[in-house]
Design a protein around this nucleic acid. Sequence first.
DNA 1: ATAGGGTTAG
Length: 656
Amino acid sequence: MRGLMSAKKLLLSTATGYNPIPQIVRNSLKRIQNRILQSAPPFLAKDPSVLSTNLIKSYCEKGLVKEARVLFDEMPKRDVVAWTAMITGYASCHHHIQGWAVFCDMLREEDRPNEFSLSSVLKACKGMKDLDCGRLVHCLAFKLGLEGSMYVENALMDLYATLDLSMDDACVIFCNMDKKNAVSWTTLIAGYTHRGDGYNGLALFRQMVVEEAELNPFSFSIAVRACASIGSHLCGQQMHAAATKYGFQFNLPVMNSILDMYCRCSCLFEASKCFHDMGEKDLITWNTIIAGFERTDARESLHIFSQMEPQGFSPNCFTFTSITAACGNLAILTCGQQVHGAIIRRGLEGNMALANAFIDMYAKCGSIRASRKIFNAMSHRDLLSWTSMMIGYGAHGHGREAVELFDEMVRSGIRPDRIVFMAVLSACSHAGLVEEGLRYFELMKRKYNVTPCQEIYGCVVDLLGRAGRVEEAYQLIEKMPFRPDESVWGALLGACRAHKLQKVGMSVARRVLDSRPSMVGTYVMLSNIYAADGIWGEFAEVRKMMRGIGSKKEAGRSWIEVKNQVFSFVVGDKMGPHIEQVYGVLDLLIQHMRESGYVPDSDAMIHEKDGTIKALCRFGHSTSKTSGAEYHKGMIFTSKRKRYAIGIYESGTPQS
DNA sequence: ATAGGGTTAG
């Protein structure tokens, strides 16, 4: 069977992944298939059933499941090995339901599954996310006396750790195993880590070390991931050292995991060093560092991206998702549009994560219509699609649309989570929809059983405060089941300032400062309250106190993209290469504001006495938290004729 | 001849 050997070589030599299968490979496989089926047994060195099974496996490894199935159906007799190869083939190509169906056929034809078949079909159950099917297989394992096989036990553990609500079933299997191997340990550690419990994941890894179990690259990469999930760069560094000691510093998944850990722990220097020291890199390496920098330094992530293709790496969905987010956070619309073009050219626009990123990016760049267009064109939407669209509407002041979208989402059968409620409450707050907002706050607790967190309380305080219902807002804070943080008090103080409730504001600020003197934001708010009433003596006093405690609130920096160039500035900027143009645009904005009937707020005139600075203050610098990550809100101003977007960020990196 | 665990976007 020299033909089979050469075909196998050919198969191995073709690139895996999404590349199309060369016709020569298909033809070659087909020829082998014909020879096997047509030749009489004496002419074959081996049993045709064995050769067919080999071929099924080869087909599936190349993603040619349909061809494998045709061959499988043409086989005159199918033994356990052939059945198992077909189940595995389907599962490895993500056709889990078909894999399960083949298993059912196998039982119907009264072929007895072995431990190989069971562990394969359990993988299919995991892929189908069907715990009941998995439990059925577990029962069958008992009936067949295969429940003690290590492969079956490991597969069952994986199933329960991934799909069951608690880790209990997985742990029971783990504890009752006669013998454990490296896979058993890794499976359980991964179970904990993937559900966000890095502490137990790491604890288990420590136990693994204590019990002198075999440590391999698999256990290291997941243990490093556990360090990242608890945000401990100290544990991560120890793991890095240990991995080097074990000689895994050239293992790509291990190094990618370490790189990711440094990024997630905000150790960007170590991350860069790690990236540059890696002799061999793959696409995941690039995606990891690009995503890592996107979270903290979007400009740098774009810079790294630009080096990727010259070094021979082609970006994929993961890359583009990070790059799109970077464009959104920098509010550089033209760049975002170029990325959009690139993904359409590559035919990747059907990717849901990517579409979600575009909704977010266009909204942050001031193009809410483009966001909606993408949202409407999506064939499937997940929670994130709806949330991104609602946050976009909220930031643009379109509260009604956000509320309508929420109801539509619920009707489509998606259960809202805490973040969605934050999006809706914040949208209501900015659009002045107080009663609607309060209704959702109640609905959240009563109907959806979502417990409000700091940010949610912050939203509701803001909602009431903006509407002038400061007393109610204060009472809500008093009733909170935990200690209010800066965002909650900040919302209340903002309301005091906006409604010129100087006395209330002062007493609140003093109270906060007594218990938390380190909250710099409170000083700023207090000084603004004084400024609003023109009490300049007190204003100066508070500012002096701020300097006294030695901490400084970083000045918010704004930027705007005009004709492919980014101009940036801070409040009161007098220098900078293009500062005159910046003020020119600002004057234009104020003019549009006046034309649209918006009266500039004279309170904000703190540092200077001319209108331009006043407007700068009104454009404010705010960030809000969504899903744990800092979310940079773009300030969007729309008039009949033009739309402007100004991106806002809080670090001090100079841009222009 | 058939089986298992790890790394990247939101």
